[in-house]
Amino acid sequence: MDFAISDKMQTILEMIDEFVEKELIPMEPEFLTRSFADMVPALKEKRNMVKKMELWGPQIPKELGGMGLSLVEHGLVSESLGRSPLGHYVFGCQAPDAGNIEILHLHGTEEQKEMYLKPLAAGDIRSAFSMTEVDMAGSNPVMLETTAVKDGDDYVINGHKWYTTAAEGAKFTIVMAVTNPDAPSYLQASMIIVPTDTPGFNLVRNLPVMGEKGSDYASHAEILFQSCRVPQKNLLGPEGHGFVIAQERLGPGRIHHCMRWLGICKRCFDLMCRRANQRMILPDGSTLATRQIIREWVADSAAEMQAARLMTLHAAWKIDKYGAREARYDISFIKFMVANTMLRVIDRALQVHGGLGMTDDTILAFYYRHERAARIYDGADEVHKMYVAKRILRDYEGKK
């Protein structure tokens, strides 16, 4: 693997870093205190600036108005954007839209692409993704109670979902529902497009997260499908292939997540080091940076971030070169390694800031609240560890 970054890519990253620093980070105090809806006009202006700079949609194919970057290149961009919670939204690669764009581009019909993909890729609408269920194990995507039963030319959907990302304000959701209950478990479910104004689609609430009321920025909603009727032409891909399509979506999606987490690491690391050098702890002018424990945290964080970054870039390179299936172990490795690295760095940075770190006067408390879920979504850490350990041990069976 060649770790060199092309001159063009280096220029792109420098432009993005400058934009995040000058245009987005100054908006964060407002973001932490106002509703996201109030900020939409200002954010739309930033989006227009990004489009004029030809930096819109790093993961979106060029024919849809994006940059058409490779997974490694998009990973590098995602790392830069991760330095602000506004980064991915302003550049048009926020979840779950990025994954839904990939699904629609690969599996959508021409009618679906015209109606849903083009406006989504342009940032004119938002979308949601409904897979996780209230009463089923979220780490096992083949365990679904939501059903889509054929009735004439329609599917009638019934089920109870939650953690449906970005449901508030979304034009449509992609729902995973059982369409073939008698098939093998991995061929029972399908992906179906459901416009959110369809009768029977009920947004019950945005889920409160760690003391915060349900956010309208990165909402995770509880959804009740009650005899929700949509045309069978809203099926995405072949019937019964929902799990297969989901796996196609989740592999690259974990690269996006991990590189975003590394961007968060970089932001928190910068804050920690600056605070350590500035915070006086003795009358003689000694700062936190003179303390051995602080230096140990800085060294550990720097090394862990570098290791996590190299692992993630290697996984992205492997997907680009050989496909997600050949990189499946690497994808699991980075999922739990990078998530835990990020949480340790956030925690150390918050600790160095002391009481200030507990307030919303810095971005640290926001990250502490919202990023703890990294060890749970896209497969809990424990599931990924069991998966790779089982297969590694199987390779050793019979060996002396």
Score class of each variant (00 low, 15 high):
residue 151 D to Q: 10
residue 159 G to L: 03
residue 214 G to C: 06
residue 223 I to P: 00
residue 226 Q to I: 11
residue 190 S to A: 09
residue 251 G to W: 04
residue 164 T to K: 02
residue 228 C to T: 04
residue 191 M to A: 06
residue 215 S to E: 09
residue 167 A to Q: 02
residue 229 R to Y: 01
residue 161 K to N: 12
residue 181 P to Q: 05
residue 216 D to H: 07
residue 188 Q to M: 09
residue 231 P to D: 12
residue 166 A to K: 08
residue 213 K to E: 13
residue 180 N to M: 10
residue 203 L to K: 15
residue 246 A to P: 00
residue 179 T to M: 06
residue 240 G to F: 14
residue 231 P to E: 05
residue 252 P to L: 13
residue 241 H to V: 05
residue 245 I to W: 11
residue 158 N to H: 04
residue 222 E to Y: 01
residue 186 Y to V: 06
residue 193 I to P: 05
residue 183 A to N: 13
residue 219 S to V: 03
residue 205 R to W: 02
residue 182 D to Q: 15
residue 156 V to E: 13
residue 175 V to H: 01
residue 189 A to Q: 13
residue 171 K to M: 07
residue 205 R to V: 05
residue 197 D to H: 02
residue 171 K to V: 03
residue 173 T to D: 00
residue 178 V to Y: 00
residue 242 G to E: 12
residue 197 D to Q: 07
residue 185 S to D: 14
residue 148 A to I: 04
residue 200 G to M: 05
residue 251 G to N: 04
residue 197 D to A: 00
residue 173 T to M: 02
residue 230 V to C: 05
residue 250 L to G: 09
residue 186 Y to N: 07
residue 230 V to G: 01
residue 199 P to E: 11
residue 159 G to R: 04
residue 234 N to M: 14
residue 253 G to I: 10
residue 244 V to W: 14
residue 234 N to I: 14
residue 175 V to S: 06
residue 205 R to D: 09
residue 183 A to T: 11
residue 240 G to S: 11
residue 233 K to L: 15
residue 158 N to E: 03
residue 216 D to A: 03
residue 188 Q to F: 08
residue 156 V to S: 12
residue 194 V to A: 02
residue 218 A to E: 07
residue 249 R to K: 12
residue 233 K to Y: 00
residue 160 H to Q: 09
residue 198 T to L: 07
residue 182 D to W: 06
residue 224 L to C: 05
residue 242 G to Y: 09
residue 240 G to M: 14
residue 252 P to F: 15
residue 162 W to S: 08
residue 253 G to T: 14
residue 249 R to V: 04
residue 222 E to T: 12
residue 220 H to Q: 10
residue 175 V to G: 03
residue 150 K to D: 08
residue 169 G to H: 13
residue 220 H to D: 11
residue 201 F to Y: 14
residue 191 M to W: 08
residue 243 F to L: 11
residue 202 N to P: 10
residue 179 T to Y: 01
residue 159 G to H: 02
residue 240 G to H: 11
residue 202 N to I: 08
residue 206 N to P: 11
residue 227 S to H: 09
residue 214 G to E: 01
residue 155 Y to L: 12
residue 201 F to W: 10
residue 213 K to N: 10
residue 215 S to F: 04
residue 166 A to E: 12
residue 216 D to E: 10
residue 227 S to L: 07
residue 199 P to V: 05
residue 210 M to Q: 05
residue 236 L to F: 13
residue 207 L to R: 06
residue 166 A to N: 14
residue 190 S to W: 02
residue 253 G to Q: 14
residue 149 V to I: 14
residue 237 G to I: 09
residue 204 V to S: 04
residue 216 D to T: 10
residue 149 V to L: 15
residue 198 T to A: 10
residue 234 N to L: 11
residue 176 M to F: 07
residue 166 A to L: 09
residue 218 A to N: 03
residue 241 H to M: 08
residue 199 P to L: 09
residue 223 I to Y: 05
residue 181 P to K: 05
residue 172 F to V: 02
